[in-house]
Computed example of a mutant assay.
Amino acid sequence: MARMVHGIMELIDQEHEGVRWVIMGDDDSIFFLENLVDVLGKYDHNKYYYFGGQSEYILSNFWYSFNQGFGGAGIIMSFPLAKALAQDMESCLRRYPHLRSADLITMTCIVDLGGSFIPLKGLHQIDLHGDISGFLSSHPKEPLISLHHFDAVSPIFPSMDRIQSTKHLMKAAKFDNSRILQQIICHHRLSNWTFSVSWGYSVHIYEKIMPRSHLIKPIETFDTWSGRPQNPPFYMFNTRSHVKDSCETPHIFYLKSIGGAQNKNEIMATYSRSVVRKLQGCPIDGNHSANYVNKIQVYSPRKKRAEMGRCECCDIIHTTGSNKAQVKLRECFTNEKIA
C-alpha cells in the first residue's frame, strides 16, 4: 500500500508544467473526462482541495473512514496539495506505520496538512454486487465522473457482456457527457403514466403518477458489497424495495441506439423494452396498462447543460394504443412541479 502512495511522490518529481490537478484511479475505473474537467473548472486549483467518492456500502466507510475518498471511484487533489503531500509523505508514513490502506493513508496525511475531504456524488466506487440497474437509473443530480468495479457487477445492458455494455454506455456519453445517466421525470396525465429517463441508459414507465421525490431513490436491484448486515442501513443513500407490485414495478426499456435527429439541434436516443413485465395493470382507477409499448424515443438538445442547478423536465407524446412513445426534454417552467 505504501508503494501506491509513493506514486504521488514520483509524479511530483517529474515536474510537469502547467499541472493543476492530480487524479488517481484504478485500472478498472471508467472516467468521463468532459464532466471531470467541467466540475474541476469551478474550483481554484491554487488552493488545497481533496475530492473523492465514498463507498456506497455504509460499512466500508465505517471500516475505513467516512472522511476519505475511495481510490476506485477516484481521488482528486489540487496540485499544491499533492505537492505538499509528496514532500511530507515519508514523514507521514513513519507517523502511521500501522495503516495498511493507501486510501486511508492518503486521507490521513492530507488532514495533517490542513486539508479536508470533499465528497463528489458523481464519483462512484460501486461497492455493490449483482444487478446495479436500479442504481444507475436513479443517478444523483450531479455530473457522472467515474464508475468502478464493473468486473464485480452484472453487465448493465441485457444480452451484452461487460465489455460490450461499457462500450454501449460510452457511445451515449460521446454524444453528451453532461446528460449521461441524468434522471429526468415527467408524466403522461391522460394515461396516468410516469416516465423516468436515465439519459443514455434506461427509461422506466410506471402505471401511476409518481413524484420525483419518490423516484430519485434507487430501486434495490443490487446486493451489498460484503455480506448483508442483519439490520439496515446498508447503503449511503435511501432505496426503494424491489417488489412485484403492478403500481410500483416499472416497465423497463434500455438504450438501443443513439444518433442525430432530423432536427440538427437535437439528439435522438431509442430505448427498447427488455422483457415483458408479466404483471397485471395497476388497478388504480383511470390507469392504463403500458404492456403494449415497446419503443421509446427520447429527444434532447444537442447543446450540453452548462449548469446542474435544477433538473430538466420533459413532455410525452403518445397516442393510446401506439407501441411507441416520444419524450422531449426541456428546461422546467417557473415553479413547475414534478409530481
Results as ranks from 00 to 15, higher is better:
residue 225 W to K: 03
residue 225 W to T: 01
residue 225 W to P: 03
residue 226 S to V: 10
residue 226 S to K: 13
residue 226 S to C: 09
residue 226 S to Y: 12
residue 227 G to P: 10
residue 227 G to M: 13
residue 228 R to L: 11
residue 230 Q to S: 15
residue 230 Q to T: 14
residue 230 Q to A: 14
residue 232 P to T: 14
residue 232 P to C: 14
residue 233 P to N: 08
residue 233 P to K: 00
residue 233 P to A: 02
residue 234 F to E: 08
residue 234 F to A: 11
residue 235 Y to V: 04
residue 235 Y to D: 01
residue 236 M to K: 08
residue 236 M to E: 13
residue 236 M to D: 03
residue 237 F to Q: 05
residue 237 F to T: 02
residue 238 N to A: 11
residue 238 N to F: 08
residue 238 N to S: 12
residue 239 T to R: 02
residue 239 T to K: 01
residue 240 R to L: 12
residue 240 R to K: 15
residue 240 R to H: 13
residue 241 S to R: 09
residue 241 S to W: 05
residue 241 S to N: 13
residue 242 H to F: 14
residue 243 V to P: 01
residue 243 V to F: 07
residue 243 V to C: 06
residue 245 D to G: 14
residue 245 D to Q: 07
residue 245 D to T: 07
residue 245 D to P: 03
residue 245 D to L: 14
residue 246 S to R: 08
residue 246 S to W: 03
residue 246 S to Q: 11
residue 247 C to F: 05
residue 248 E to P: 02
residue 248 E to N: 13
residue 249 T to I: 04
residue 249 T to R: 06
residue 250 P to W: 10
residue 250 P to V: 11
residue 251 H to G: 10
residue 251 H to Q: 12
residue 252 I to S: 03
residue 252 I to G: 00
residue 252 I to L: 00
residue 252 I to N: 00
residue 252 I to W: 00
residue 252 I to Q: 02
residue 253 F to K: 00
residue 253 F to N: 03
residue 253 F to M: 06
residue 255 L to N: 05
residue 255 L to E: 00
residue 255 L to C: 01
residue 256 K to V: 06
residue 257 S to I: 03
residue 258 I to N: 00
residue 258 I to G: 00
residue 258 I to W: 03
residue 259 G to V: 06
residue 259 G to N: 07
residue 259 G to T: 09
residue 260 G to W: 09
residue 260 G to N: 13
residue 261 A to P: 04
residue 261 A to T: 04
residue 261 A to H: 07
residue 261 A to F: 02
residue 262 Q to L: 09
residue 263 N to K: 12
residue 264 K to D: 02
residue 265 N to C: 10
residue 266 E to H: 01
residue 266 E to W: 08
residue 267 I to G: 02
residue 267 I to M: 01
residue 267 I to V: 13
residue 269 A to S: 15
residue 269 A to Q: 12
residue 269 A to D: 10
residue 270 T to Q: 13
residue 270 T to S: 15
residue 270 T to L: 13
residue 270 T to P: 07
residue 270 T to K: 11
residue 271 Y to D: 04
residue 271 Y to H: 04
residue 271 Y to M: 07
residue 271 Y to S: 05
residue 271 Y to E: 07
residue 271 Y to T: 05
residue 272 S to R: 09
residue 272 S to T: 15
residue 272 S to A: 13
residue 272 S to H: 10
residue 272 S to P: 01
residue 273 R to K: 15
residue 274 S to Y: 12
